[in-house]
Every structure is written in C-alpha cells, then in structure tokens.
C-alpha cells in the first residue's frame, strides 16, 4: 500500500514519518509537495508535524489553503485514511475535517516530553493493533495543543466515540495532572464521524522503533495498513 506524506513549507516531521512508513512498516511512501493539486494513487495520507508557514496568524491557518488541500479534503470525504500529527492535526482542524480548535498551552510554554495516552477504542482503522485501555507512551512537542471545543461538540465527540486518545496517568486515569496542555476532557487525539480522519497531538513517528526508546507509536501505522489490506482483500 502506498502512503503520501504531505509537505508544507515549515513541516519538519515529514522525514520521520517517511522513514517509519518505508523502513519500519515497509510500505511504499512518497512525499507530496503542498503545491500538488492531486493525491491520485495514494491509499493513505499523513499530514506531518512542524510549523507550516511559521504558524503565522494561527497554527495551520495558512496551510489549510495550500493548493493540495482540496485534494486532501476530497480524499478524506471519499473515506481515505488521513492522519494529522501535531501541526497536521492543527491543519485538519482549520480545514474543518475535524471539529474544534487549538489554543495556546495552559502553561504558555512549549512542552516537549513523553506522555501517557489511553487508547479508548480498538475497532478503528487507526487503533486495531492496540488493546482497549492500553496505555501508550508517546512524546508530545507543541506550544498550541490545548484542544478546545464547545460543550455540544464535546458531547457529540463522546456520544460518537470519536475521542481515540486521552492524556492519562500511569494507571490510565484522565486526571488534571496528567493533562499536559489544558485540553478539554484530556483530549489528545480524535477521529471524524466516519472514522477515517485522525488528528493527534502526540508524535507516533518519534517512537516507532526500540532504538528511539519505544515503539508504542508504530501500532497506528500498522493498524492503518492492516485495515486497508483487510478491506482490499474483501
């Protein structure tokens, strides 16, 4: 299966994603420059982390209008798997592919540390390699990862089980202390209603092989691969 890693000016986790997909998950992968107008031939897309357009105006706000975005949005609407990591998540929010918005971290500081995440669902294309309530250790690195949405949206996210990953303590409890940035309901990652678009602030591509201190993130890439190959076999 073939992944596309979308590269915006200022993306800086594109090479990490490419490496994990190609060398660890052993799948085809190509970069997609943000000025391309189509994403034909790709089975899954990754919007990587970084500081697209220098985070000017708002994180992701300018990237959202890149020439490639209409094709990304169309790909998502047709059910293609899309993973937005960190800045990629911010771009998906700005593009309206996922609900909500990002605010500055509650602490006002850029936070770069490994956090605990709880996997809330395993029947999705992004988490089928994990166990329910499994606790993952995945690093975050952001200044604006304080997920915000209004109460109605939060209720919809909860009712539709769209909250895939939450910040938790080592026992899996979603405590205030375990919430690094002030996100509503400890939200670290959500999917859209159809379940084919994932946005998450933590960086799975930074912990996908033991040499980097852990491989808890690899399951996300492998889940997508399994899911797509399972679907294609049917």
């Amino acid at each position: 299966m073939k992944f596309g890693v979308v590269v915006f000016p200022g993306s800086n986790c594109d090479a990490d994603c490419y490496h994990v997909i190609r060398n660890v998950a052993q799948q085809d992968v190509e970069y997609i420059w943000h000025q391309q107008h189509d994403v034909k031939g790709f089975d899954a897309l990754v919007l990587p982390g970084g500081f697209s357009y220098g985070d000017y105006l708002r994180t992701g706000a300018i990237a959202r209008f890149s020439p490639v975005m209409p094709a990304v949005i169309e790909f998502a609407r047709r059910g293609g798997p899309v993973i937005g990591i960190c800045n990629g998540f911010q771009i998906l929010l700005e593009a309206g592919l996922l609900p909500g918005a990002m605010l500055r971290n509650r602490s006002l500081t850029f936070i770069c540390e490994t956090v605990n995440l709880r996997v809330n669902r395993t029947d999705t294309m992004f988490t089928n390699r994990y166990a329910k309530d499994q606790i993952l250790q995945i690093p975050i690195a952001h200044g604006e990862g304080n997920y915000y949405c209004d109460n109605d949206t939060l209720k919809r996210l909860q009712d539709n089980q769209q909250i895939l990953f939450t910040y938790c303590d080592s026992e899996g409890r979603e405590t205030e202390e375990a919430n690094p940035n002030g996100s509503v309901a400890n939200i670290a990652g959500i999917i859209n209603e159809q379940g084919n678009v994932l946005g998450m602030m933590p960086h799975p591509e930074r912990c996908s092989e033991p040499i980097l201190g852990g491989s808890d993130g690899l399951g996300i890439f492998l889940s997508v691969i399994d899911w797509c190959q399972g679907v294609s076999r049917k």
Binding site: L57, A61, C149
Partner: peptide, 8 residues
C-alpha cells in the same frame, strides 16, 4: 475564512 477561526 482566514483571518479569524469562528470556532474560537
């Protein structure tokens, strides 16, 4: 469309 994010 761009200058403000109506969500926040």
């Amino acid at each position: 469309k761009l200058l403000a994010n109506p969500v926040i």
